[in-house]
């Protein structure tokens, strides 16, 4: 490590240049940093309160015992459906697969047109233009993972080209990965720089910053990564790529929500949270919504500020919703398998 770099050096220019989406400019960020005792980024990150693992996990576990019934359950299930980023991120994703995914995203339950649509589909950049065409005239957004997803191990120029290609192809949202190695090596400035540069490359597209919490080892690192992403201009912070275990967990999500709440409290800018990876059941999804409900102001209970990155989750949400409304459980083949 070469020692802390002044924040101005790493990213001020990037912020200044970025003007396309006024609401996304973290105007409070640099003001926020200045009065701190140590105006360098590492100093700021070290000044964040510590996170006690046991206490955090105990709080998440306590909230997981909430029992959501009746009308509240239907509302939660339908809200969760609307928040799904229906995802396929495999090497064998063909146009056919993506077309099926888009159809499912638009109308998750063909028998009940009142259900859905979901928030977005989440795919690799080369499939964006296809998805855009499939989703034309639909409110479903197209999110592309970029920046050498999932490992992020490419030069910044390649990552930026990846982003630009996705945006060029019409991506509404870009899910980038942070440089976890840089974060673990203490090169926070590098991580921030990349987020800012990607944000710039996104233009009008929304930026979701994937922290890949499963590789960050400690909650303190996750907290720091959350702040770096928000300071860099993230519209969402996202837990995981789905390619690393553990992916999203309740305590991780709770911690990121708390970071978002603090950041909102200090700057007034709301940042969304996306939980991704391993969320397969409606019960899991409702637990995340309980965290949102009891941690963040009401505006977060919407797809504009909370998302689930998932694939099989959607069907369980549909099954449970059907049960809640009609009193009987659906069968495994009642819904398509995308």
């Amino acid at each position: 490590m070469t020692g802390p770099k002044p924040l101005g050096e790493v990213g001020e220019a990037a912020i200044a240049k970025h003007t396309s989406r006024a609401s996304a400019i973290p105007s409070g960020a640099d003001q926020l940093l200045r009065p701190r005792a140590d105006s360098s980024l590492p100093g700021f990150l070290r000044s964040l309160p510590g996170v006690d693992q046991v206490g955090l996990e105990a709080r998440a576990a306590a909230l997981a015992t909430r029992s959501i019934k009746a009308g509240a359950k239907i509302l939660a299930l339908e809200t969760a459906i609307s928040m799904v980023d229906l995802t396929t991120l495999e090497g064998d994703d063909t146009p056919g697969k993506v077309r099926a995914l888009c159809a499912k995203a638009k109308a998750p339950d063909p028998a009940d047109p009142g259900v859905g649509p979901v928030a977005a589909v989440c795919i690799y950049p080369d499939l964006v233009s296809l998805a855009k065409a499939e989703l034309a005239n639909s409110p479903v957004l197209v999110a592309a993972v970029a920046t050498a997803f999932p490992s992020g191990r490419s030069p910044l120029s390649v990552k930026l080209a990846d982003v630009e290609a996705a945006v060029e192809a019409g991506a509404d949202e870009v899910d980038m990965v942070i440089d976890r190695a840089a974060l673990l090596a203490g090169d926070y400035a590098r991580v921030l720089l990349e987020v800012r540069e990607v944000k710039k490359a996104c233009g009008g597209a929304h930026l979701k910053v994937i922290l890949e919490t499963g590789e960050l080892a400690t909650y303190d690192n996750i907290n720091r990564a959350s702040w770096i992403a928000m300071l860099g201009g993230a519209d969402f912070i996202k837990t995981s790529t789905g390619k690393v275990a553990p992916a999203s967990t309740l305590p991780v999500a709770l911690l990121m929500m708390e970071a978002v709440r603090e950041y909102h409290g200090e700057t007034g800018r709301p940042v969304g949270v996306k939980v991704a990876g391993g969320i397969r059941t409606a019960k899991d999804a409702i637990r995340y919504l309980v965290l949102v409900n009891e941690t963040l102001p009401g505006q977060w209970m919407s797809k504009s500020l909370f998302r689930f990155g998932a694939s099989s989750l959607l069907n369980d949400l549909l099954v449970q919703r059907y049960k809640q409304i009609h009193g009987v459980y659906g069968g495994p083949d009642d819904y398509s398998l995308e």
């Binding site: 959501i68 509240a72 509302l75 919504l289 963040l296 102001p297």
Partner: peptide, 22 residues
């Protein structure tokens, strides 16, 4: 914490009202 942030904190009102679960 600034006064403005204090004000923002008060915005908390649960989006989902839990139904009775006796």
């Amino acid at each position: 914490m600034t006064t403005a942030s204090n004000e923002r904190m008060k915005e908390v009102s649960p989006a989902i009202e839990y139904a009775p679960a006796p």
